[in-house]
Nucleic acid binder design. Structure first.
Lengths: 144, 144
DNA sequence: TATTGTTATACTCTATAACTATA
DNA sequence: TATAGTTATAGAGTATAACAATA
């Protein structure tokens, strides 16, 4: 593995500041005050990746187990996920999304995306192409 | 102005999740426990945009004035910024970076970028091009 | 002993509401 | 009255350390 080049260090610096500010705006953009962005993200993972244990969700979301405990407690008390016992290991429980959770996820995703999409319509086709190409790279950067 | 197209809604959704996770990882990557990412971001703004009032920094950083009050208080008590009185308006003070602040900023930026740059070396030239092109678009998205 | 998850605790980050000082 | 900034307070988000239950 080579050392970071000067160009990479500059890119890293610019990317870090750009991501901080954009994420700050996305997080503050609360649509429904009943659910937060972190809860929504965990709910999206449970919906997409099927029934999972708490540890598995924490690993996918890249947070520590105690953080996920809190998120899951709030999702469960709101009725958006439900737990069942693991057949072989009584330490674990299996967490899955409920129909109400699916409804909430769909509605919130639509509302939050609308806020972002409204800003995106002001961007050129060229800008959108650049963002679209970067999403896949960012995904790898955020989950490695 | 047109309505968001289906393609824009999908891009918005994918971008939102990618940004959340990547930003989460960047924020948790603490190098020096003496300074936080938000403090560093404000310090970078004061360094780059010259002497500013508290309100101006808050506007550039896109946070509310009370949030900036806290950030500036910590930066000032650490000796990384200093205040002087505004010549015409005694409600305001003028905030500028100190030499110690400049040193801290250079050192911290280097250390934090190293973490990101180390990951970037594993990416292809094509990936880096995509990220580089997106940075400018993200900047506009985060500061509009 | 090792693993899974939770509880206890603390710190960062940010906001709104109420207030002070100045214009 | 209006504006710039601060103080008071609270909630979201996350972590580490210590613990309990189970494997």
């Amino acid at each position: 593995m080579s050392q970071p080049s000067p160009g990479q260090a500059e890119l890293a610096s610019a990317l870090r500041l750009a991501l901080l500010r954009t994420a700050r705006r996305l997080r503050s953009q609360r649509v429904n005050t009943a659910v937060t962005l972190s809860q929504l993200s965990a709910l999206a993972t449970v919906c997409k990746c099927g029934p999972l244990s708490a540890g598995e969700i924490a690993a996918i979301e890249r947070v520590q187990p105690p953080s996920m405990t809190k998120i899951l407690a709030s999702l469960e008390s709101a009725g958006w996920v439900q737990r069942s016992s693991h057949p072989d290991d009584r330490r674990q429980s299996i967490i899955e999304i409920t129909p109400a959770g699916r409804d909430l996820l769909a509605e919130e995703t639509r509302a939050r995306d609308e806020w972002l999409a409204k800003r995106l319509v002001e961007f050129s086709a060229e800008d959108l192409r650049k963002l679209g190409e970067a999403v896949e790279v960012l995904d790898r950067l955020g989950s490695e």
